[in-house]
Design a protein around this nucleic acid. Sequence first.
RNA 1: GGCCCGGUAGAGUAAUGGUUAACUCGUCGCCCUUUCAAGGCGAAGAUUACGGGUUCGACCCCCGUCCGGGCUACCA
Length: 496
Amino acid sequence: MTTTSSASGKPAGEIRVRFAPSPTGYLHVGGARTALFNWLFARGRGGTMILRIEDTDIERNRPELVEGILDGLRWLGVDWDEGPYFQSQRLDLHREAALKLAASGAAYFCDCPPEKYAGGDAVDETEDEKKEQGPRRITRCACREGKPGLSAENAAIRFRVPPGAATQFEDAVFGPREVSNEEIEDFVLLRSPKEGQARGGPTYQLSAVVDDIDMRITHVIRGSDHISNTPKQALLYRALGAAPPIFAHVPLILGPDRTRLSKRHGATSVESYRDEGFLPEAFRNFLALLGWSAGNEEFMRTSEIVERFTLEGVSRTNAVFDRPKLEWFNTQYLQKLPIDELLPFVQGELERSKLWQPEWAGEKREWFSRTVDLLRPRTRLLPDFSTWARAFFSDSFEYDPQAREKFWKDERLGAMLGKLADTLAALTDWNHDACDHALRELAAAEGVKAGLLINGTRVSIVGQAVAPPLFETMLVIGQERVVSRLRLAVEAFAAR
RNA sequence: GGCCCGGUAGAGUAAUGGUUAACUCGUCGCCCUUUCAAGGCGAAGAUUACGGGUUCGACCCCCGUCCGGGCUACCA
């Protein structure tokens, strides 16, 4: 097996990491966080990020899911320098390695039924032994001693775990690890051929290690659910004549009930957060802080996280996914992002909701920018721009029933709205103070508190009880529209 | 069952033997105010899972217990 055939000609000593999802589902938040950590690590030290699709399980594998995973990654802003490689296209390399190991005696052919191995039971134990209480022995079946007539055409290949030794590896998060080989079963490298097949496929252990060697991966950063498999892989590296990489097992993400995050906890796919209207950078910031931290500051632009990220800073404790905190990050980014960085996201949202007008990117860009800037302190998710703030982008909007209920109570309001329309229509200079004075004078003349008119007017021109300060709202909506909306409101008020 | 890893306020983390255990989210209150957010100020909330050690001194080191998680596949 060669270790020099990787696609990149970069110098040795460079950091190379990979994210290796298997297409058995969508990209979930746990996978996304693992991808992010790999990416942060690579980007922070000039390393190379590789994407590899682990699709060796033909039965569970769903190729149509690959594109969704890539989309999720792209949305997250996690890009890669090499790949995606598909393990299904590298099967010969994996088989070759298994055969080579079998030829050298580091592995052997075995045709025991898989059930014999399941559960870690010793297959060759006696009934008496089975009844004994003590710890179960790790499987070492008779094939290990060599069974005639076996080959890759009719048997699986198992790794021969060296007896009487211990296997160690380095984990950047959990520290040095050592496991007695007595705890490691003779795991399968190459499956036995299924009916109609000439040869079996590689298992995860084999293909991952062979590819990691071939791709010259220096740091394997993955979920801590893999930590127990790592001794097997360390053994494999050495048997294949390669030095094991540094491993870094990152803690798992849990649901509110402290069990592993899964569908029943609600949204777990990255795409669902995209669809809800979270900003990718907010999501990234949140994810980065699940199992990693750097001092007291939590709101950190991605560039800053890249700068500060270290494997040593990764926690060993599983973390609970806390949606309210994710939402807090989103509101922070909605408010603090330089406006020009936010605009494309709002544009995307308005395009989705069919409210977008091309001129807002052209001659009316200033207006668009000012309006978004005015709205953003009160938004939580991108769709707020096309739902709650619809009246800022469209003349077709409805009065929110609760807003009407709350602020269209006073009977005198209807008439006042009409008078206000007349007064505002007469204004020659459409600015904040002019609107302010006009409204307050009217309120005084009518003998009502300005608040009554202000609140009633807000509902009239944007249909909502909550909006930015009224006179600034009037400015961005424009004189003509404000006046006509007030006149429409007079009718609606009467018919309410 | 076995092997491994964890356990600091409701959540995420800090403090890696040395003053009243710190920060962020959330919760509650006050200020601001034209609605609601944002923002500002403040409060409540932790016998550092429990029990033993070691030490002048323990969140931190050791042992045990409990709880949680992972692995225990010819899945990845």
